[in-house]
Nucleic acid binder design. Structure first.
Lengths: 341, 341
DNA sequence: AGCGAGCATTACATCGTTGGAATCGGAGCG
DNA sequence: CGCTCCGATTCCAACGATGTAATGCTCGCT
């Protein structure tokens, strides 16, 4: 059996509480006593029982990380940073998947209590104001990504600004017919998508160009497969109608850009010579795409760090004002965008 | 505050234990009483406190999933399946990263007890027999991947057989100088790598060919970046010495294949015309590589399912004989391997 | 030596749940 | 009518850690 504080106390010749004091280090303990206890701890290989500790002080040491689709590279990179940084703070990460299912998002928020969660980090795609507001008792929650501000702590990049910059860059390099992959329409919409569309539109309008709705490609999932199939359908449509190719595709995630690059390569459309492609996220694979992907980069570790800090603050003081932390981004210039004549 | 069994009991006019009996359903409860309790449960929106339950009966409902590198696509896909399937069994997944650090692997195994873990699913790269054997009290553990059999439940694909088949396929399509990416040598080794090398060697020898150690490319991490840099160094070496290009590269993971494809594209070495490339894992991105990657596919969901079943069995009966489940694989033929005349 | 101050340590109770033993109530039997 | 028996329910204790209040100890000062 595992050693308990009682065992350690007996071995060190002190009371259980003194052992607890040594471990937690808040109450002062005489140096000599501490030493005895510590060697007893080591000898018995004591590991605290988190259930008991959690029961006593209401903390489990677990926080949930809920991501929309765990199988994407972006999720993986984010999860990695979270696990590493949470560890440094003595937290373990419980992984949850929200899917693109709004019911699941609601359930996660309301049922988070089931599994000993001290806090919840949520990356919603669809979560709307009412969902969170409607829940009486929310666990301490930090939202990654951009949603309507509803008084919850948020950490995110400036999607709108970044999209505007990328489109400005495409315009500056001579592109005039820029398709977007991952747009929203009446069939499918997400907060992130809308913001990136908005930034894109702003850049176009500032340049005196109109938004062409035919160039808004909607992917119901932000995966390579969905993007590939959407782009194929689009190109087929162009073939039939004899429409002109766009000179660039701005993909709202790198994952979709990979699907786009694949389809273009397969059809003999050369990137960037015939068409430029830009992404968003700067996932590890982006640098190894063919050609290397020009994209919007930001520090995923910084997101995790900021989110965990915000969560720690929220747990400590549930009435603190909601924070809204913006993680800086930058355009990462690689080889998939070329200067047009 | 959250409602407790006491609150529910008071509302239903019964004792706490009766409430517990209703919830757990092992001890018979009169239908009329059960109804009263159940409506009280619903009214108070009772959620059991898992810390207390865990303290009482030693179960937390959490299992740990420890993967070597969480940022890879393969890890992400696996994690996704695990999270989904674990949920169906009422478990939550706690994510851990073992890195390629053997100390960390040891620590995970021995310290797993810290965080209320009912079981551990471990995907070791380096874990050796002694590590697990040396630990006095192992939590119920299932190993994903192939390691020396040391009496622990295992779930894995037949790496050796799959590698042999892939090399046979490359030989059958006329390749004669096959480099491997992800091999082991005195500097770096992993069980998986050694098995795949072994399968590769068997195929070569069966065809009467010798293994050329110069074609064994070692990547200290199985990432696109490491593979790209290793391949670049190799090609530079060939340039200097005027050696002949291999006609194929068999990458021991798809992630590395992506790095390899990128380097080849950048150097103008056409795939598959000048050189074939094969992978292993069939990650989602493999179908969207340029060209689409020929690889070894297997059902990641089946791995998760088998591992969870094995773990459930192990938790129920810690003395059950160790199982060794082999997940079937298949060659997935795409466009990165061509017939050499 | 005596006394209080102040720090180190202990005893006890408690967190919420659930095994196990004890108890209660009602049905069945002599 | 009383007794047994059995199923349903209750009571009690325990899981392990820790906050609180009480106690013990040492030291310095007179």
């Amino acid at each position: 059996m595992r050693a308990t504080v009682r065992d350690v106390a007996a071995l060190a010749g002190v009371s259980p509480k003194t052992v607890s004091n040594v471990i937690n280090g808040v109450v002062p303990v005489r140096a000599e006593t501490r030493e005895r206890v510590e060697s007893a701890l080591a000898e018995l290989d004591y590991v605290p029982n988190m259930s008991a500790r959690g029961l006593r002080n209401g903390r489990s040491g677990n926080i949930a990380l809920a991501l929309p689709d765990l199988s994407t590279a972006y999720s993986a990179e984010l999860a990695r940073s979270f696990v590493e940084l949470a560890h440094e703070r003595g937290w373990a990460i419980q992984l949850e998947q929200s899917g693109n299912d709004p019911h699941r998002e609601v359930e996660l928020v309301s049922r988070a209590r089931t599994h000993l969660i001290d806090g919840l980090i949520l990356n919603p795609t669809l979560l709307s104001k009412s969902v969170v507001a409607g829940t009486a008792e929310l666990p301490p929650t930090v939202v990654i990504g951009e949603v309507e501000p509803y008084g919850v702590d948020q950490v995110h990049v400036d999607s709108q600004g970044a999209a505007r910059e990328m489109t400005e860059h495409l315009l500056a390099t001579g592109h005039r017919h820029i398709a977007i992959m991952g747009g929203s329409d009446e069939r499918w919409r997400s907060a992130t998508s809308l913001l990136r569309m908005q930034g894109h539109r702003e850049a176009l309008e500032a340049a005196g160009l109109a938004v062409d709705p035919a160039l808004n490609l909607v992917a119901t999932q932000w995966t390579p497969a969905a993007a590939a199939s959407e782009l194929s359908a689009f190109l087929d449509r162009l073939d039939r109608t004899g429409g002109a190719l766009p000179d660039a595709v701005f993909c709202f995630t790198d994952a979709m850009a990979l699907g786009v690059l694949h389809v273009l390569a397969k059809r003999g459309i050369r990137v960037p010579r015939d068409m430029s492609v830009a992404g968003f996220d700067d996932i590890d694979e982006a640098a190894f795409a063919i050609p290397a992907l020009t994209t919007v980069g930001f520090d995923k570790r910084a997101i995790a760090d900021a989110a965990l800090s915000a969560l720690a603050r929220r747990i400590a003081d549930s009435h603190a004002p909601a924070s809204d932390i913006v993680i800086p981004h930058r355009l990462v210039h690689r080889d998939s965008v070329a200067q047009r004549e």
